[in-house]
């Protein structure tokens, strides 16, 4: 028995499969736990271990799947047979969702810096460029994937392939090509996804021209509102590394819904 749940957890994490551990932290059997994984039928998660009662296991497994979908760790109270309005025991549900994804379109110097910080941020990074000479493994060893293709084709493939999960709120797309030939179809394809952040690099004049072309290509007012362009926060960044920090800072602020002023100039809680 000893080590079985941990070994399974390690296997699932290495395979980037979503998994949750629910541990009784207060109640009759502190430390009792189940490991919950997703299966082909989402209504029937795979469960290993036990919290001491089959009904409780079933209810906690169901709640663990809910937490996995939200990507959120939670503390919950249950009755000894899983009753939701009772407080016999307290369970901590810890989720290990696959890492969020960042797709970087354009294999330029800024790409390497953005990808390097992205790995530190815990993202799975894909670099995509249609130009074979630029999109090489040697130039982007820190990326999880380097793909030679048109960005819009890659996006279509991700969204349509049943094997890959569609892009969601935690994911990000950065368009760094500054060539309308690549940028415009990439941005149009990005608008059709549910991705949480879309940024495009370029000066204000590049962005004005790009915006006209996007409207011609059918982008709506709402689509354009989703586009962070010029990309990044106003940090005065110049080097690829500084620009990468400003882009990551903008992504964090987008997720938290903050305006990103200085903390010392604001009031209220930090988190």
């Amino acid at each position: 028995m000893a080590g079985q749940l941990f070994n399974r957890l390690a296997t699932e994490l290495r395979a980037s499969r979503p998994v949750a551990i629910a541990t009784e932290v207060d109640g009759p059997h502190p430390g009792a736990k189940i490991l919950v994984g997703t299966s082909a039928t989402p209504a029937e998660p795979t469960v290993q271990g036990s919290l001491g009662n089959p009904d409780l296991d079933r209810v906690v497994a169901r709640d663990s799947i809910g937490c996995l979908e939200l990507g959120q760790n939670e503390i919950r109270h249950y009755g000894s047979r899983g009753e939701v309005n009772q407080q016999d025991l307290t369970v901590f549900i810890e989720v290990f969702a696959p890492p969020p994804r960042m797709l970087i379109f354009g294999a330029v110097d800024f790409t390497a810096a953005l990808a390097r910080i992205g790995s530190i941020m815990g993202y799975s990074i894909t670099v995509c460029d249609a130009r074979e000479a630029f999109a090489t493994r040697e130039r982007f060893p820190m990326a999880d994937q380097v793909i030679v293709d048109w960005p819009h084709r890659l996006l279509e493939q991700i969204e349509q392939d049943p094997q890959t999960k569609s892009l969601g709120n935690r994911d990000a797309i950065c368009i760094l090509t500054h060539d309308p030939k690549f940028d415009v179809p990439a941005a149009i394809a990005a608008f059709s996804t549910e991705v949480g952040y879309i940024g495009a690099m370029g000066s204000r004049s590049t962005q004005q021209k790009r915006q006209r072309k996007l409207i011609e290509a059918g982008a709506t007012h709402e689509d354009l509102g989703r586009l962070h362009a010029p990309i990044g926060l106003d940090l005065g960044a110049r080097t690829p590394e500084e620009v990468a920090v400003s882009i990551w800072a903008e992504i964090i602020a987008t997720h938290t819904g903050r305006n990103a002023p200085n903390l010392r100039d604001a009031s209220g809680p930090l988190h």
């Binding site: 901590f92 809680p269 988190h271």
Partner: peptide, 15 residues
């Protein structure tokens, strides 16, 4: 040792 709950301001989140 795992953080399972935080009340008020805390530097690290549950997990």
């Amino acid at each position: 040792a795992r953080v399972v709950d935080v009340e008020g301001s805390g530097p690290r989140a549950p997990g």
